[in-house]
Structures are given as structure tokens and as C-alpha cells.
Amino acid sequence: MKMDLKYPVGKFKLDGEMASMSDGWIEEIGALPGLLKQAVSSLDDEQLDTAYRPGGWTVRQVVHHVADSHMNAYIRFKLALTEENPVIKPYEQERWAKLPDYGLPVAISLTLLEAVHSRLHTLLSGLSAADMERTFIHPESGAVKVGENIGMYAWHGRHHLAQITSLSKRQGW
């Protein structure tokens, strides 16, 4: 069976009850910064500037994207927990990946991700069952429950980590 280079862990799907899965997802979110740092720690600039698949982002862009995406997620969680069905602002991730800050050393985004995830993990670990049912409105996707969004971001981190680790394995790094 051929590996899907774009989605090495498959696409996100909600399997089972959110309540029974949320603790595991929250722990995944807490562990991501360390795993991502470990995955890129031995890579040099040439390797960091290698696309994980033909037509895909470079490892460097992936790391910066995860930091940007998870900062947005943190704000979305806070909005959903403090407002009634807030409409969130989507962003053009493909365009963001072309901005000058995506050329910075990955250590900057790894530090940022560690800080965001420290706060995010603490926030999510303290949620009640009622909090998990709160929603925000995504203009393209409609209503998204906090509990489902936890799963989506656990998957998101796993997804991008696997893009990097599978590239490293394929390249023998």
C-alpha cells in the first residue's frame, strides 16, 4: 500500500464519542511541541528547506504553519468559551506560508508553539462537559464544537509531524 504523502496519518475524522477521546487528544496537544522539536532538531537548512512532497511546503514552512495555525486555534477556543457562537476569522494559510517570516529559523516557531501549547493544554485540561459542547462558527464549515476542535487540532499536529518524520525516513535523515 502506497503512503499518502499529503495525508500520512489520513484525513481527520471523528471516531467515537468526543468525551471518551478528548483526554487523549489534549495529551497529544500537550506533547506536540517536544515531538516537533525532536523531529527537526538534527536537520540542517538544506533539509529544512526541502518539501515534504512534490508541490508541498518545506519542512520550515510546515513548522511555521503549525505555530500560526495553533495560535489561531488557541484564540478560537477562547472565543468559543467566552462568547455565544462567535464567528471566527479564517485565514489564507497558503498565502501566509509565502510571507517573509516563514524564512526565519524554525527555533522561533518552536519556542512560540511551546508557549502557546502550554497555555492551550492548561486551558483544555480544565474544560467541563458543557464547555466541550460550546461552538464557534467557521464561515466555511459552519458550527464547530470545542470538543471536536480539540480532536481536529490533535490530528493537525500529528498530521504535520508525520509529514516531517516520513520525509526524514524516506530521505534517510
Rank of each mutant, 00 (worst) to 15 (best):
M1V: 15
K2H: 10
K6S: 12
K6R: 14
V9K: 13
V9M: 03
V9G: 06
G10S: 10
K13N: 12
G16D: 09
E17P: 04
M18L: 15
A19T: 15
S20M: 10
M21P: 00
W25V: 08
E28P: 01
E28R: 11
P33I: 02
P33R: 05
G34D: 12
L36N: 00
K37S: 15
Q38A: 14
A39Q: 06
S41G: 04
L43I: 04
D44P: 05
D45N: 14
D45K: 12
E46C: 00
E46D: 15
L48C: 03
D49V: 00
T50F: 07
A51Y: 07
Y52R: 11
R53C: 10
G56S: 06
W57F: 10
T58D: 05
T58H: 08
V59E: 01
V59T: 08
Q61T: 09
V62Y: 01
V63F: 02
A67M: 11
D68Y: 06
H70N: 15
H70Y: 12
L79F: 06
A80Q: 07
A80C: 05
A80M: 03
N85R: 14
P86L: 07
V87E: 14
V87N: 02
K89M: 08
P90K: 13
Y91T: 05
Y91M: 08
Y91L: 06
E94K: 13
E94L: 07
R95T: 13
W96I: 10
W96K: 10
K98S: 13
L99G: 11
Y102P: 00
G103E: 14
G103N: 15
L104I: 00
V106W: 02
L110V: 03
T111G: 10
L112N: 08
L112Q: 08
L113W: 01
H117F: 00
H117E: 01
L120K: 02
H121L: 01
T122I: 02
L124Q: 10
S125V: 02
G126I: 03
G126Q: 09
L127A: 02
A129D: 15
A130I: 07
D131F: 04
F136E: 08
F136D: 06
F136K: 00
E140A: 11
G142D: 08
G147R: 09
I150F: 06
A154Y: 03
H156L: 05
H160I: 09
S166H: 11
S168R: 15
S168T: 12
K169D: 14
Q171K: 15
W173T: 04
